[in-house]
Design a protein around this nucleic acid. Structure first.
Length: 452
RNA sequence: GGCGGCGUGGCCGAGUGGUUCAGGCAAGGGCCUGCAAAGCCCUGUACCCGGGUUCGAUUCCCGGCGCCGCCUCCA
């Protein structure tokens, strides 16, 4: 079974399942106020790999990831551009899922929206107030963090330590709060702002409430895994957890956090990556699988550079795998090599050691190529099958020889005929023509194959 | 200031107390090929600095230096 680093306990430990054979996962999704950036790509790809691997392992996975469709950032943009906030949220969500498709991410099983859960959030906030864990002020309702006994579990810092330093950022509602770390559950609306009714007056939910309500509603108490970026560890996840604890409800059993995307000079990505900042831009320039490969070749908790160099390298590595897939498209299905799959599982189960898994994949490809070079397809077949399995398990679709139009196939046959007749001038001209048409032409002893 | 993490060969990026050792990309040489492409083989004195522990440290400990994330709403 999978062993995963758990932020709460700071150790790699087995992902214990609430129900045998079933895995419940909640991932904090996007706030839809702008185009998805590179960080979002990683935030979704890492878990797409996880979910696919778990499913491949035979587990029944329920994967939930929300969309925050009401938030200050959406409202601010609406005001600045004189648009309806719904319009921004809807369009951004469309763009989001188009980008997700582009990088090969499967849609989560459930995509709850914050606006669908406002009533339940109001209800939960009411319970927290009743319990004396939350209180109303002139501008909203706040959770009293001092009433949460183990507040700071994920931050690994006590309240005092958190307050010891810190930035000079504005603290929302600072003057009215009982404790500086108290966080807002309900924001009372200012004139013109979108709002919902509540016992404390019209307003909107604070950011940290939706994920508690939605995860508990859909996945239930004590669900298996809660995931997100390391930047969400605190305050977002800490505060989600605080609400559940304050309610006396069991929350996530295991916490997974992935590392950030950094740029080539090590500076903060948001400023320095320029035109690659937008996820859609990379999809225009690179194979959608390249980003996945970059991430697979590094560990999910490490910072990763995503840029021209790393994406280009990954695309070239993929080209090799595609060539292999094309070369082996006619190799009949066989029982995958057990030793290879065992090694693959061992790597993945060790805190998702995808770099090791990829090394194994490339090694297996090399072994299979060697056997094919030696004209021994029978012994290559189990290795080929293993490569196919691993590709599926990590979500890499390898390009085969399929979808070559008839006229191109005819030209390829003519190329072979010309070579057989030693009419190399003609052969070269046909090859040039096909290459010019965007085909990768591979002339082998058994004939010419084409792929894109 | 606090908490967490990182510093590996031309580039990216794993990993480990010790003879050969990730892997990808790039480079050089070779095999194969009509020529290519693809593939295969070979090559490159890597582990931020200074101490310490040890028969032996890139790997453990201590101290530096540099970088990154978080410390109230950023994946």
């Amino acid at each position: 079974m999978l062993r995963l680093y758990d932020t709460a306990t700071r150790q790699v430990r087995e992902l214990a399942l609430r129900e045998p054979g079933k895995v419940s996962i909640y991932l904090c999704g996007p706030t839809v106020y702008g185009p998805p950036h590179l960080g979002h790509g990683r935030a979704t790809l890492e878990y797409d790999v996880l979910v696919r691997y778990l499913r491949w392992s035979g587990l029944d996975v329920t994967f939930v990831s929300n969309v925050t469709d009401i938030d200050d950032k959406i409202i601010n943009r609406a005001v600045n551009e004189g648009r309806d906030w719904h319009d921004i949220a809807h369009k951004c969500e469309d763009v989001w899922f188009r980008a997700m498709e582009g990088i090969g991410n499967a849609r989560p099983d459930d995509v709850p929206h914050a606006t669908q859960y406002v009533e339940q959030m109001v209800e939960m906030i009411g319970q927290l107030v009743e319990l004396g864990r939350a209180y109303a002020t002139d501008d909203g309702v706040y959770l009293s963090v001092e009433t949460v006994e183990d507040y700071g579990l994920l931050a690994h810092q006590s309240l005092d330590e958190m307050l010891a330093g810190g930035g000079e950022r504005d603290i929302y509602g600072a003057e009215l709060k009982r404790h500086p770390a108290d966080f807002v559950l309900w924001k009372l609306a200012k004139p013109g702002e979108p709002s919902w009714d509540s016992p404390w007056g019209p307003g909107r939910p604070g950011w940290h409430s939706e994920c508690v309500v939605m995860s508990l509603d859909i996945l239930g108490e004590g669900f298996d895994l809660h995931a997100g970026g390391q930047d969400l560890r605190f305050p977002h996840h800490e505060n989600e957890r605080a609400q559940a604890v304050a309610l006396g409800r069991r929350f996530a059993n295991h916490w997974m956090h992935h590392g950030m995307v950094v740029d080539a000079t090590g500076e903060k990505m948001s400023k320095s990556l320029g035109n690659f900042d937008n996820l859609l831009d990379i999809l225009e320039k690179y194979d959608g699988r390249a980003y996945r490969m970059v991430l697979l070749q590094s560990h999910y908790r490490s910072p990763v550079q995503v840029g021209e160099t790393t994406l280009t390298n990954a695309a070239k590595a993929l080209a090799g795998l595609d060539a292999f897939a094309a070369r082996t498209s006619s190799v009949a299905g066989a029982t995958p090599d057990a030793a290879v799959l065992d090694a693959f599982r061992a790597a993945m189960d060790d805190d998702l050691d995808t770099p090791k898994a990829m090394a194994l994949l490339f090694d297996t490809v090399r072994q299979a190529n060697k056997l094919l070079d030696a004209d021994d397809p029978d012994r290559a077949a189990p290795l080929v099958a293993a490569v196919r399995e691993i590709s599926v398990a990590v979500g890499l679709e390898l390009g085969g020889a399929a979808d070559v139009p008839d006229d191109a196939l005819r030209r390829a046959a003519e190329l072979d005929a010309a070579r057989a007749a030693k009419d190399y001038a003609l052969a070269d001209s046909i090859r040039a023509e096909l290459t010019g048409a965007g085909w990768i032409v591979e002339t082998t002893p058994t004939g010419t194959t084409l792929r894109r």
